[in-house]
């Protein structure tokens, strides 16, 4: 084992203290809260795992979990496919690359709340520009606010729009790192552009894809503002996702214990998903695949 020298430890201390104060201590406190019954103005009462039982037997929780599962998977995989396609397009060369690049990155520069609200206005049934376009094309009233599947689709769409630049950047950077000479060798070996993509670009972008999947699953799991600003979980709590469920139980119903339990269940859930991809990455590294 290499011994860390004291100066190095000293320089690491501030960051670790900060992490301890803003992440570790609150997490531990929230875990303690999740084992107690607690609301405004009352002392904590230790109830063991009761809060977890309450949450896990609540149909609203399972509805929110299912919604989260569907939306998160749809967001992450659709976003990934679009990002790969766009990165491949940029790699092949586009006209006015700098302007195109700026356009692609723009959604990431817009505040999440502002972005969602603008989408909401544009999709407002009867008056929004997008809603009216859809209606004038003969698809009927675009009344997503009363249809949970349609509302969740809108949530998915906005979430993809907002985070696509992040995924695109990671994957495009991964593709740019592939040496040009590999493509030249492939052309001499007789590969078509399509074969170049499948046999060279894609396999060599897998590390970047895995990293972006881990990031995006963890981010997407916390999905909140899109749903909260669009539907606030309605109608009839049918479009709630886990973060909205947590918010409702904590701040609407004042049940800090169950909200804390939900928080910890979400952590476990996202760690579970991330660990699948981390394991895949680790295995690739052991195999010497990079």
């Amino acid at each position: 084992m290499r011994r860390l020298n004291p100066a190095a430890i000293l320089m690491l201390v501030p960051t670790h203290l900060l992490l301890l104060v803003v992440i570790a201590l609150p997490s531990i406190y929230v875990f303690w809260l999740s084992l107690n019954e607690s609301t405004y103005g009352s002392d904590l009462t230790f109830v063991g795992l009761d809060n977890y039982v309450t949450v896990l037997t609540s149909s609203y929780f399972w509805r929110a979990a299912l919604n989260t599962l569907i939306v998160v998977n749809a967001v992450v995989y659709i976003e990934l496919l679009i990002a790969i396609g766009m990165a491949a397009l940029f790699l092949g060369g586009v006209r006015y690359p700098k302007i195109m690049f700026a356009i692609v990155l723009m959604p990431y520069a817009i505040s999440e709340v502002v972005g969602v609200l603008v989408w909401k206005i544009m999709l407002n049934s009867g008056s929004g520009v997008l809603a009216r376009t859809i209606e004038s094309l003969g698809f009927g009233m675009f009344n997503w606010s009363v249809s949970p599947p349609l509302a969740l689709s809108v949530v998915t769409l906005i979430s993809i729009w907002h985070h696509l630049p992040f995924t695109f950047l990671l994957i495009y950077a991964g593709m740019l790192a592939i040496p040009k000479s590999l493509y030249e060798a492939a052309r001499i070996d007789g590969a078509t552009p399509w074969q170049e993509f499948w046999r060279i670009t894609l396999p060599l972008t897998i590390p970047a894809i895995l990293i972006s999947l881990i990031f995006r699953f963890v981010f997407a799991f916390r999905l909140f503002s899109e749903v909260w600003l669009l539907t606030a979980g309605g109608p009839a709590r049918l479009t709630e996702v886990l973060a909205v469920y947590l918010y409702q139980s904590g701040f609407k119903y004042g049940e800090f214990g169950t909200a804390s339990a939900t928080g910890w269940l979400m952590v476990i859930g996202s760690l579970g998903v991330a660990s699948i991809y981390l394991w895949a990455m680790h295995r690739r590294m052991l195999k010497g695949n990079d």
Binding site: P179, S181, A185, I200, L204
Partner: peptide
Amino acid sequence: MVFQDYALYP
């Protein structure tokens, strides 16, 4: 063609 950096598919 044989390339300077070999250009082997990693």
